[in-house]
């Protein structure tokens, strides 16, 4: 797992990706790569195409042109659940939890692709079905444990809708990690959080890499988060990559400043 992975080929490699809706080009010839164990942030003004990029990677849309490679193998054309099982998991900008299922069930449901028992085995409660159930239960508790007391104990059996907003964001991350991905796509994980929670999320993302071993591609408007953890930052505008480099390089890039001017004060926040 270690050793040759880092230099040889990127974990996620997007080549000349393009997508347009009708006449509107949303992603335009985008090249982007994420190395194993890296944290890469994507920034850009509203409507720049950041979420669309995630939708392309996870198979919600099919690119008009270009290729998406995970560990050298193309993901284009695969159904979303296959892409997830290959090792790509995401969170959603507008939360999409299974609201009327319990916290733990949300996390257990995401392990569907890692269990094999057939419906007949479940009906008869044959050994494999029982063993898998025990395993994913333990795994779910472990993943929820990642969030410390935020998602611990008594909260496990509560419906997801009863969680506070910040905890629902955390649960989405827990659910994504439970599908055992290699790369995590986080769409604005700090949106709507207060400064303390934002700080916590920043630390958590770092911990996901260090302890969880995930590679992370992050969309974030909060520059504190981006500055704190990114190995590399990529700025998008109108679906085109306008800058790439360290946070300081990108934040001071004139094209980036121009792209943000008038649209939002995010870069100076």
């Amino acid at each position: 797992m270690s050793g040759n992975g880092a230099q040889k080929q990127p974990l996620l490699d997007l080549r000349g990706l393009s997508l347009s809706f009708g006449g509107l080009t949303v992603i335009d010839g985008l090249d982007l790569h994420v190395d194993e164990h890296e944290i890469v942030s994507v920034i850009g003004p509203n409507g720049a195409g950041k979420t669309t990029l995630f939708n392309l990677i996870t198979g919600a849309y099919r690119p008009d042109e270009g290729d998406i490679l995970l560990d050298g193998e193309s993901l284009v054309g695969l159904p979303s659940h296959k892409i997830n099982q290959r090792g790509v998991a995401r969170t959603f900008q507008t939360l999409r939890l299974f609201l009327n299922m319990t916290v733990k069930e949300n996390v257990m449901a995401a392990q569907y692709g890692h269990t094999r028992s057939s419906i007949v085995e479940q009906m008869l409660q044959l050994p494999r079905a029982r063993r898998e159930e025990r395993e994913i239960n333990a795994f779910a508790e472990e993943k929820l444990g990642f969030f410390g007391e935020r998602l611990m104990g008594y909260r496990w059996n509560q419906p997801a809708y009863s969680l506070s907003y910040a905890n629902r964001r955390r649960l989405e991350i827990a659910r994504a990690t439970a599908s055992r991905p290699r790369i995590l796509l986080l769409d604005e994980p700090a949106a709507g959080m207060n400064p303390v929670e934002t700080h916590e999320i920043t630390e958590l993302i770092g911990k996901l890499r260090e302890e969880g071993g995930f590679t992370i591609l992050l969309i974030e408007h909060d520059m504190h988060v981006v500055e704190g953890i990114s190995d590399r930052v990529i700025a998008l505008d109108h679906g085109v990559k306008i800058a790439e480099g360290s946070f300081d390089q990108v934040a001071t890039n004139p094209r980036v400043v121009e792209a943000y001017l008038g649209t939002s004060a995010a870069v100076t926040k």
């Binding site: 996870t58 198979g59 919600a60 159904p79 979303s80 659940h81 997830n84 099982q85 998991a89 995401r90 959603f92 999409r96 939890l97 299974f98 609201l99 009327n100 299922m101 069930e105 257990m108 449901a109 995401a110 392990q111 569907y112 692709g113 890692h114 269990t115 028992s117 419906i119 479940q122 079905a129 898998e132 159930e133 994913i136 659910r175 994504a176 599908s179």
Partner: peptide
Amino acid sequence: SRTGRAWRALREDPLAAEMMG
């Protein structure tokens, strides 16, 4: 079991379910 849970997940949000494998 896993199938029942997956059914509930797709009832709640098919798109999210699909993206969770």
